[in-house]
């Protein structure tokens, strides 16, 4: 009984990790560095600041915090579902 639980928990956990990391890479390397000029030109400005520049100096950091909140919440659910909850 224990083995399949551990396996499905691990797979679900890996999936979540990959999803969160692709968002992480997109907001930092994507929006702020590699695609920055395109973002500046084609995305709506934030206030008076071009989108790519704003992402590099403000937006990406906000996204990082949100990613960790999502991670903590999703992992807690995942642990509970698989019976790994403590307390």
């Amino acid at each position: 009984m224990k083995e399949p639980t551990a396996r499905s928990h691990r797979i679900a956990c890996l999936k979540l990790t990959l999803i969160l990391l692709s968002v992480w890479a997109f907001v930092s390397f994507g929006c702020s560095i590699l695609l920055r000029s395109w973002m500046d030109g084609n995305m709506p400005s934030i206030g008076s600041v071009p989108f790519g520049f704003w992402m590099a100096q403000q937006g990406s950091i906000i996204c990082f915090v949100l990613l960790l909140v999502v991670y903590a919440v999703c992992m807690r659910r995942l642990d509970n579902k698989h019976g790994y909850d403590e307390e």
Partner: peptide
């Protein structure tokens, strides 16, 4: 800015 905050995502996940 990005390096020292984005690293925490890697660290945590």
């Amino acid at each position: 800015l990005m390096g020292w905050t984005g690293g925490f995502v890697l660290l945590t996940i």
